[in-house]
Amino acid sequence: MTGDAPPRAGTLRAEEVTVVIGGRPLVRGVSLEAGPAEVVGLVGPNGAGKSTLLRTFYRVQRPTSGRVLLDGDDVWRMPGKRLARRLAAVLQEATEDFDLTVYDIVAMGRTPHKRAFEGDGATDRAIITESLAELEAAHLADAPFDRLSGGEKQRVLIARALAQRTGTLVLDEPTNHLDLRHRLDALRLVRRLGVTAIIALHDLDLAAAHCDRLCVLDGGRLAAAGPPAEVLTPALLAEVYRVHAEVSENPHTGAPQITVLPEK
């Protein structure tokens, strides 16, 4: 990997985090942790509170109570630039619709490492180029970002987080809009980087295959946490997802594999 010393994988922890918006509790006393170089999947049905919880990690939504800690430091008390050197986020939706090229978008990932108004140096340019290449987006460097497809935008935003060169990643549905191969590539890349990651995913089979542990949210509460094989049981799928399913072992990977059964 281009650049100086590789970033140190951190420990990211939520301690009794509650988020109340408009009088409605969206997250209710959730505690969870991702240790150094651990990939933790955050799963649960729509409206379970996954995105709201992740927003407290990268300082978009302040917890009503509880704390979010990165290596023991409260992220809400850290200077923004310091946090951005240690934690990068990929949001669920691409919101950057202004007139910038793909290269410009990915270059934003280098901002926390530079002084105000400082241009890109040789190291910055090499990291930007490498990050685009990792996501097979180098050929898009000069393209206007707002003209890309949803899948292309998502790959560029992952490249921007990669260019940020942090040891901790928070990803909200990073495989959204991606085709099957690019979904697999993105999750394999997170693993290959050796960073700490908390990833919200809808696809339970993908989550089981690529995450060390799963944390299941239901109605804003933590319903279960542990290795995928322990968490993804027929009983939990019935209780949280309201489906009748069988869970088997993938013969190639050994990961849990879910088959939803027809209603009786």
Rank of each mutant, 00 (worst) to 15 (best):
R181E: 13
L140C: 03
L169V: 06
A229W: 00
V30Q: 02
A207H: 01
A34W: 03
T259Y: 14
T233D: 12
A88P: 04
A255E: 01
Y58M: 02
V243L: 09
K264M: 14
T196S: 11
A107Q: 06
E118I: 05
F57T: 05
P79N: 09
V243K: 11
V19G: 00
H202D: 15
P25G: 07
D172I: 00
S131M: 05
R147E: 13
G194H: 13
M108F: 13
S65K: 14
P7K: 04
E246L: 14
P36S: 09
R192P: 08
R242P: 04
P45L: 07
A107W: 05
T56R: 00
L91C: 02
R85W: 04
H182G: 10
V60Q: 15
A138L: 12
V247W: 07
P36R: 11
A209T: 13
G3I: 01
L237E: 06
H113Y: 02
A197C: 10
G119N: 13
A159F: 06
I158M: 08
N176K: 05
L189A: 07
R188T: 13
P262Y: 09
L53E: 11
P63K: 06
L91A: 04
G47Q: 06
T11W: 09
T18C: 04
E263W: 12
A88K: 03
N250D: 15
P262S: 10
D71V: 08
I105S: 01
D99L: 10
V170F: 04
R82D: 15
V216T: 12
T64Y: 12
L204G: 03
V243A: 10
V20N: 02
P45V: 07
K114W: 01
A207F: 00
P25S: 10
V260Q: 11
R188G: 14
A48N: 13
G49A: 05
A159N: 11
D99P: 06
V231F: 06
G23K: 02
D74K: 00
G47H: 06
D4W: 03
E96K: 04
N176G: 03
L69W: 11
E16L: 01
K81G: 11
A200D: 14
V231M: 08
R213K: 15
D124M: 00
L201H: 10
L83P: 03
K264F: 13
A141H: 12
L54R: 02
H244T: 15
